[in-house]
């Protein structure tokens, strides 16, 4: 199979996905919540004041996420399996959702629950590996804990017998709306199609509600 045929195949596949997403946006305006694997909150929950650090080491008050949809994942950079698997998937979701109008696309945010090791420098290199568009947030443990608490994100340090530690943490994705309110939660196990499909249905539905 030549490169051109592969490119053509990818082009056709991308068009089909784009057409599907466009149709979902154009079809009848839903009055009832969409059927999704993701759980939509009955009423969006505003977040209290939290100030984190962005990947350039600058203070990042959480209300700076305003103006766009945001998908948040909580993890840590020394996580060998689940975090890179989930972030790679979020990168692919980002690609698929390029079919949406720019204002409807989510910002992908990775929040460290291991700020002791995850400095802004480490976060910048780490999230940049998955996508240039990713935002990496870390900060003081009490601020990270405050944000996690508001979203119901559980995490815990687990020491290794031979020294060092790993982190137990929620594998869910959290949707914040453009007013920085907690709006929906996507539970693991994740798939690219599942996240992209549910996200599109949810923002369409919520867009109609406003």
């Amino acid at each position: 199979m030549g490169f051109q045929r592969i490119a053509l195949f990818i082009g056709v596949a991308a068009l089909a996905v784009a057409a599907g997403l466009w149709l979902q946006l154009q079809l009848a305006k839903p009055a009832t919540p969409p059927e999704t694997e993701a759980t939509l909150l009955q009423s969006p929950r505003p977040l209290g004041t939290v100030v984190l650090l962005d990947q350039d080491g600058r203070e990042f008050p959480i209300d700076r996420l305003e103006g766009r949809w945001n998908l948040l994942f909580f993890g840590f950079t020394q996580c060998p399996d689940v975090c890179p698997t989930t972030l790679a998937m979020m990168g692919q979701v980002s690609e698929v959702l390029r079919a949406l109008p720019e204002a409807a696309r989510p910002r992908m945010v990775f929040v460290s629950i291991d700020p002791e090791r995850d400095t802004p420098d480490i976060m910048r290199a780490y999230v940049g590996h998955f996508s240039a568009d990713f935002l990496g947030l870390t900060g003081d443990l009490d601020q990270v804990t405050a944000l996690a608490g508001q979203l119901g994100v559980a995490f815990q340090k687990v020491p290794y017998a031979q020294g060092g530690y790993t982190m137990d943490h929620s594998a869910a994705l959290f949707l914040l709306n453009p007013r920085v309110e907690f709006n929906a939660v996507f539970s693991a196990p994740h798939s690219v199609e599942g996240i992209a499909g549910d996200y599109t249905k949810i923002i369409h539905y919520l867009g109609e509600q406003q």
Partner: peptide, 11 residues
Amino acid sequence: ISVMENDVMRM
């Protein structure tokens, strides 16, 4: 092994 317990991933 990564195991999911109550939506929390444990290794």
